[in-house]
Design a protein around this nucleic acid. Structure first.
Length: 492
RNA sequence: GGCGCAUUCGUCUAGUGGCCCAGGACAUCGCCCUCUCAAGGCGGAGAUCACGGGUUCAAAUCCCGUAUGCGCUACCA
């Protein structure tokens, strides 16, 4: 337990190189959860030090994902705080990383390296051929000052490398995994400042985490192998080491790291597909964390109440889309119909993926409000609504008239059933579901048909489909005129 | 190849020496409910707890080894 004088400060530090990956957002969630659960601060820092991989709009997309899930940040882009700026390129422009690098060089913890990419590639090739473990051969580590002057003259581009210890053991302590040991001799002198004067992740991360007074570094497990480098950096600077919390990796169905070849990995994609933020939050929280043997449904509040670092798992978790969909169904069913209707409007009115253009926009909200309670328990994703609701909105659904014929019926009995159903509808005075059901049950009996037969025929005639909400609720919502015209069309 | 992490039903997981010849959830199958589809209820199948050795009266749980999977091994994060 950290003392009250040392409040928890955690950060989510994405690189704006693409869409917000689910695994990445899961890391953000855990950081946010821990910050909020412990009364600490949640900071967002943009790590845009790789100028070549920058993607326009990626930062906005990442922030959108956070906002969608309600992961609010106390400091970061758009929320200035006392430790800014919160974008590394801006910090670079301020000279923060250069200053730290200079200090490291002056104190014999780092050195300039003039090796060309060609030399490094050749070196790696040779190492591979000799099946030696790869790594920088420290060619420039102990160059004499005169030689350095020479190199600078010939080749003004250089990088700065950190001097790793040549021997010994580096032990890091991870909250999830305990002590992890690394052999120093196997770790090479890694680059901390690139030739474009931007820092690498390692330097920027350590410097910024220290300057921003981060207390817990929570990130995906793929970072565990670089933890010893970070530890050496902290020691060289004389900075206090934050707690390390390496989160289990999220896997695809084939058990390799979840990536695009497994399908959509963008959080934004799932939002657009109509997954609810509450469902996504619940699902993501249980990927690498659990409370007990029976709790499955967690609201944001419950998550905050129960989340602890101790219950984070060490083993990786496979992303199961079926389970996500189940969660979504659960949350949709628990949603207030009015709120759900409101949520559905944009999906229904969408130009390409929405209802057919023949349906006038804006759609009738009152009418929609009567449909939603009928379809709610069948919806798994909001994006299914247009296809599912279409027959409520268009004039006349297209369907194969063979579908009108139910089991044990033929063309004549079917035609007769539609005619009688039409006649009954024409004279019906009470259009409530209950009244309709009563009259049509009587009709079925009168005709010697099973309810399943008569109702099935009417269902298809009225909706063009074989799977719908309960028939009479549906007819009641559709309304007298629409039902009559569709029954007539079934006779054509 | 080297280093690191991990290993309980197909999947997410409960389990920290006896309550476990292993519990819950998703998916799957069957039945019930029922005008169809869902939802819901009930039930089934599904894990020799990766494997092999120990330690112990007793191990999924502790120790050692092996195997497998994944991650890292860039002037990417």
């Amino acid at each position: 337990m950290k003392s009250m004088s040392n409040p928890v400060r955690v950060r989510y530090a994405p690189s704006p190189t693409g869409e917000p990956h689910l695994g990445n957002i899961r890391s953000a969630l855990f950081n946010w959860l821990y910050a909020r659960a412990s009364g600490g601060q949640f900071i967002v820092r943009i790590e845009d030090t790789d100028r070549a991989r920058l993607v326009e709009g990626a930062q906005d997309s990442i922030l959108d994902a956070l906002r969608w899930l309600g992961l609010d940040w106390d400091e970061g882009p758009e929320v200035e705080g006392a430790y800014g700026p919160y974008v590394q390129s801006e910090r670079q422009a301020l000279g923060i990383y250069q200053t730290h690098t200079d200090w490291l060089i002056a104190n014999d913890h780092a050195y300039e390296c003039y090796c060309t990419p060609e030399r490094l590639a050749a070196m790696r090739q040779a190492q591979q051929a000799a099946s030696k473990s790869p790594g920088y051969d420290r060619h420039c580590r102990d160059l004499a000052e005169a030689a350095r002057v020479d190199f600078r003259k010939q080749n003004p581009t250089s990088v700065v490398r950190f001097k790793m210890p040549l021997e010994g053991e580096i032990v890091i302590n991870d909250v999830v995994r305990g002590e992890v040991k690394f052999e120093s001799s196997l770790l090479d002198d890694f680059v901390i400042l690139k030739s474009d004067a931007f820092p690498t992740y390692h330097l920027a991360n350590v410097v910024d985490d220290h300057l921003m007074e981060i207390t817990h570094v929570m990130r995906a497990e793929e970072w565990l192998p670089s933890a010893p480098r970070h530890k050496m950096l902290y020691e060289a600077f004389g900075f206090e080491m934050p707690e390390l919390v390496h989160l289990p990796i999220i896997l695809g169905p084939d058990r390799s790291k979840l990536s695009k070849r497994h399908g959509a990995t963008s959080t934004i994609y799932y939002r657009d597909e109509g997954y609810l933020a509450s469902a996504m939050l619940n699902f993501l929280a249980l990927l690498g964390w659990s409370l007990d043997d029976s709790s499955e449904i967690f609201s944001r509040e419950e998550l905050l109440k129960h989340f602890t670092l101790e219950r984070i798992h060490a083993s990786p978790a496979v992303f199961d889309k079926d389970k996500l969909e189940w969660y979504n169904g659960v949350y949709i069913r628990n949603m207030d119909p009015k709120a759900l209707a409101e949520e559905l409007v944009s999906y229904l009115e969408a130009s390409v993926t929405g209802l057919p253009t023949s349906v006038a926009r804006p759609i009738d909200r009152d009418y929609l409000a009567t449909i939603v309670p009928l379809e709610r328990e069948r919806l798994k994703r909001l994006s299914e609504a247009p296809a599912m609701f279409e027959f409520f909105f268009i004039d006349q659904p297209e369907y194969d008239h063979a579908l009108l014929v139910q089991k044990g019926m033929d063309a004549d009995t079917t035609r007769n059933a539609v005619e009688r159903a039409l006649a009954t509808a024409e004279t019906a005075s009470d259009w409530s579901a209950a009244a309709l059901e009563a009259t049509y049950r009587a009709l079925a009996e009168d005709m010697g048909l099973k309810t399943g037969q008569l109702f099935g025929t009417i269902r298809t005639a009225v909706s063009g489909r074989t799977a719908t909400p309960p028939l009479f609720d549906m007819m009641s919502v559709l309304g007298h005129d629409r039902v009559l015209s569709r029954l007539k069309a079934a006779l054509a």
